[in-house]
Design a protein around this nucleic acid. Structure first.
Lengths: 111, 111
DNA sequence: CTGTCGTACTACGCCTGACGTAGTAAATGT
DNA sequence: ACATTTACTACGTCAGGCGTAGTACGACAG
């Protein structure tokens, strides 16, 4: 089965990550596994893509980072969604509804 | 109403253009009007995006160009979809089905 | 006790596609 | 006659994705 090209997902990586932060903070490796699972292995985000998304979103104020003081485990950078990030996520969801319909108009099933 | 961001469509501009070439050849200005109409004004492709898509797709063998010998009208560059282009279009349609479902998993309506 | 695997990142730099800006030029409307 | 619409071309910039590489810690097998 053909892979999903990154250009398609581009602009939705942030949305996917934010979705996974809605209920609780999380960190890179965990997020990447969840994306893989939720997409049924159809989309596997690249590490560099993921971590640069975190950096970008923190700069934009969509997420905040903090360190876990895990008992002995390797130190992780956790990210928590902010109010701004939540609003951004909601906007993207609205945009998605529009986009989906627009693109759908250019898809032909019968050929 | 918010516009559709270009990053979302990125990677589907080519698909949209090819769709409009499925039945007959066409040219830039015409295509851009059709995209506007078919999307109900929700997406208006930028000229530079459109013409660079043509160039790229011709280089990739997805379309062929030819000149119209229109009766006196300004000379246009027409584009015709090739077999390779048709195959590419079909693949993109398949990919779209996957992608749509994947992204949909990360959209929450209830917030 | 040693090497490999999984976890958890950071750094650097390239590539592609979108697009801003600008300019050209013929045809058409007013 | 002048503005607008049509139909492009050229040039340069930017962001996001990703390839490659490297670091470092812990767990577990042999």
């Amino acid at each position: 089965m053909s892979n999903i090209s990154s250009d398609v997902i581009r602009g939705y990586n942030d949305t996917m990550i934010l979705y996974l932060l809605l209920d609780q903070p999380s960190y890179g490796y965990e997020i990447s596994k969840q994306i893989k699972n939720l997409s049924e292995e159809k989309y596997i985000i690249k590490e560099t893509t993921l971590y640069s998304a975190f950096t970008r979103m923190e700069k934009n104020g969509y997420v905040e980072s903090f360190f876990s003081d895990e008992n002995g485990g390797k130190r992780r950078t956790y990210y928590r969604i902010t109010d701004t990030g939540l609003q951004y996520y909601k906007d993207k969801c609205e945009e998605w509804k529009l986009t989906k319909d627009v693109i759908q108009n250019f898809i032909r099933e019968d050929i």
